[in-house]
Design a protein around this nucleic acid. Structure first.
Lengths: 223, 223
DNA sequence: GAACCCGCAATGTAGCCGCAATCTTCGCCG
DNA sequence: CGGCGAAGATTGCGGCTACATTGCGGGTTC
């Protein structure tokens, strides 16, 4: 889950960033509207958290500009004002949800999940392939009921592959799922994760295969 | 168990808050209807205690407004008037229960539990793992009948782990289960609780294990 | 006032994970 | 069909970080 946090206050941004990372989200930060526009051009985000008070104007202005560029990433407004007219103007501008500061992070996470679930409301939290079960929400995996212990990054890679099982996942998508922009990756770290995943899945008798597709990415399917 | 108390009288609110906390409930307070609406937007509560006499109107007005927003949190009305027409109007408005002041806190707690049990009446109150029994309702534990005395926070951690036994519980979920909105945590307090829990469970011969899963959270299972 | 929670900090430790070196596989082109 | 280059697979190593544990002290409760 990759999140863009648009917030000018450094302290607030840092705290929120850290909290969201605990929920295994990759968070990138923009301190202004213009910076946000640049970042949106650089990467695909799953959701945008948008403060209204920004140095170069009301955060709401960002929304129509994104929509004009054909970017329909869901937006959740964050603001100190929680009055009713404020809420309405936010939602009118095209935001998907609204949160007044101060708020509980878990509530924000719940709304994020709700917003992300919206387009395909039917998608289940549990997915199964071969003898492998994975709970995308709580991030735990088991093989026929026997829990499978996996480190964090491998689990994130696995979840991304499972979400699109049977279809190829481009390499960049996998990297994006695991790493935020500011975390640099200058080696074959992803290949390493894939390799270790393959070994563990095989040892656990999961009955799944991860195929490498040269020059493109990976594909996961039952054995 | 997270409770929202809507009550404008400070003294009453403080007393009730303190009393409920003794029953291991995390209580947040709102002094008016509008404040309550904000708080409900901020966090997910398990139940709402609602006074009728509030500075910005009759507390009953809050209920339909919540329901319209798709929030079905159970509501218990608290009021000085206990006449029959009053009760009827309260329940008509969508409240789940009704208490006339003055009341015994024990009775309020009992009604809270009843209301909370309602939606999923089948879920078991007792869970067992290894030689450890835990009553999720009254939050007390025993090992083969011999009562196991545990401090409050450790019990909350234990209960959260037991609810999802055999599956991983993410760290942030545990923190949310133990701490209310206004309580902050800026150290490894959770780790401390886990550590002390492990020791006590082991000394009591509970026959259970709490596995730490690096970067994710914890998992509890039989030894 | 004694007991006990409970948050904090210091310390030790395990294991994740990034890196790089090496080996293998695949595609391309003559 | 054979060789070459590039991408991928695998594995050991080491730094770093999250977690485990424990003592201490302030605060609260009985």
């Amino acid at each position: 889950m990759r999140i863009l946090l648009v917030e000018d206050e450094a302290e607030m941004a840092a705290a929120l960033s850290a909290a969201l990372r605990k929920y295994d989200m990759a968070v990138d930060r923009a301190a202004s509207i213009s910076e946000a526009e640049e970042l949106v051009a650089l990467a695909v985000f799953d959701a945008i958290l948008l403060d209204r008070q920004l140095p170069d104007g009301d955060g709401l202005c960002l929304i129509p500009r994104l929509r004009k560029r054909g970017i329909h990433t869901p937006v959740i407004i964050l603001t100190a004002k929680g009055t009713l007219p404020d809420r309405i103007s936010g939602l009118d501008a095209g935001a998907d949800d609204y949160m007044a500061k101060p708020f509980a992070v878990e509530e924000l996470v719940a709304r994020l999940r709700a917003v992300l679930r919206r387009p395909a409301d039917l998608k289940p939290d549990m997915v199964r392939l071969g003898r492998l079960n994975l709970n995308l929400d709580h991030l735990d995996a088991d093989v026929e009921g026997r829990p499978l212990r996996l480190p964090r990054r491998e689990l994130l890679v696995l979840a991304t592959l499972m979400r699109r099982m049977g279809r190829t996942v481009v390499r960049a998508t996998l990297e994006a799922a695991v790493y935020a922009l500011d975390e640099e990756i200058q080696s074959n770290a992803l290949d390493t994760h894939i390799s270790r995943l393959r070994r563990k899945l095989s040892e656990a008798g999961a009955g799944v295969e991860i195929h490498g597709i040269r020059g493109i990415g990976y594909l996961m399917k039952g054995a």
